[in-house]
């Protein structure tokens, strides 16, 4: 009986200690710095405002006027010369004056980080993004846009980064009837059937083919065998009221913005106040 009584007291003591430890843990955990459920809930709510601040600041940052034109232009220059000193100094100066919190900015192209500004010390942040388009001459695969003019029967050739496009404007005539859309004369154009393998697919959008001032073709340029097809838009329009019917043919590449721009990601420290 003594043994049983001793065991009972031991178990009771153990159970009491365990309960006290759990109780102390529950009440003590909220006094650990940085641990509380309540601030997490607040942070989610506050991110709405934080994101607004991030977007406004970043948007105005890249269009801020400076010696090159805008800070966005300075960014392009920095990227082309791979010297981010001026951009970094200006950006840091502005954001340090404006931000009441810490910030980090990443510069990336096609999801590849090229440079980082600010203090990259870890903190919970709200991100936002802005794109600065690259100038076409420095990024050959992007932003192809070319305008050519041709009369009836002329062959028009485009040399794009993704392949050659050849088309022939045939059977063009103009009429001065039915004024639509502000133009006085309207060309009606036809084109030969798919002229080269560079153009794959039938025209998908044609506006007013019988009496038109604007014809739009959605085409794909590329090598069909390699299944690399890049979307382009071909626009045939009558640019003036000249009854001779000078036809303007405009070929534009439908770029992916992340491939043809510098992406700026700004991370602003979450406000936990």
């Amino acid at each position: 009986m003594k043994k049983a009584g001793g065991a009972f007291l031991t178990e009771l003591l153990l159970a009491t200690v365990l309960v006290l430890i759990i109780a102390a843990g529950f009440f003590g955990i909220q006094h650990i710095p940085g641990f509380s459920l309540e601030p997490e809930a607040k942070a989610l709510i506050q991110s709405v405002g934080d994101n607004e601040i991030c977007n406004v600041n970043l948007l105005n940052l890249i269009r801020s006027p400076n010696e090159d034109g805008t800070l966005g232009d300075t960014l392009i220059t920095s990227y082309l010369t791979k010297d981010y000193t001026v951009f970094n100094e200006t950006t840091t100066n502005i954001l340090n004056q404006v931000m009441l919190r810490r910030w980090v900015m990443n510069l990336s192209i096609n999801n590849r980080v090229e440079a980082t500004f600010g203090d990259p010390a870890g903190f919970v942040a709200v991100p936002c993004i802005a794109y600065v388009p690259l100038p076409q001459p420095f990024f050959s695969n992007c932003s192809f846009s070319e305008i050519q003019t041709g009369f009836d029967g002329y062959e028009i050739n485009f040399t794009t980064p993704d392949g050659n496009v050849t088309m022939e404007i045939v059977n063009q005539f103009v009429t001065d009837s039915d004024k639509i859309g502000g133009f006085g004369v309207y060309p009606t154009s036809e084109w030969t059937t798919i002229p080269e393998t560079a153009i794959i697919g039938e025209p998908t959008t044609i506006n007013d083919t019988l009496n038109a001032d604007l014809l739009i073709l959605q085409i794909y340029v590329g090598d069909e065998s390699e299944e690399v097809l890049i979307p382009y838009e071909l626009t045939i329009s009558e640019p003036s009221e000249d009854p001779d019917g000078l036809t303007e043919v405009h070929l534009t590449k439908k770029d992916l913005v992340q491939q043809c721009s510098i992406a700026l990601n700004l991370f602003v420290e979450l406000n936990n106040e």
């Binding site: 406004v56 600041n57 105005n60 801020s64 006027p65 954001l95 404006v98 009441l100």
Partner: peptide, 16 residues
């Protein structure tokens, strides 16, 4: 209390 970086349009100029 928050600060926003804005551009001010005055006399055809943008002022940070």
């Amino acid at each position: 209390q928050e600060k926003y970086y804005v551009l001010v349009y005055k006399d055809s100029q943008l002022i940070p």
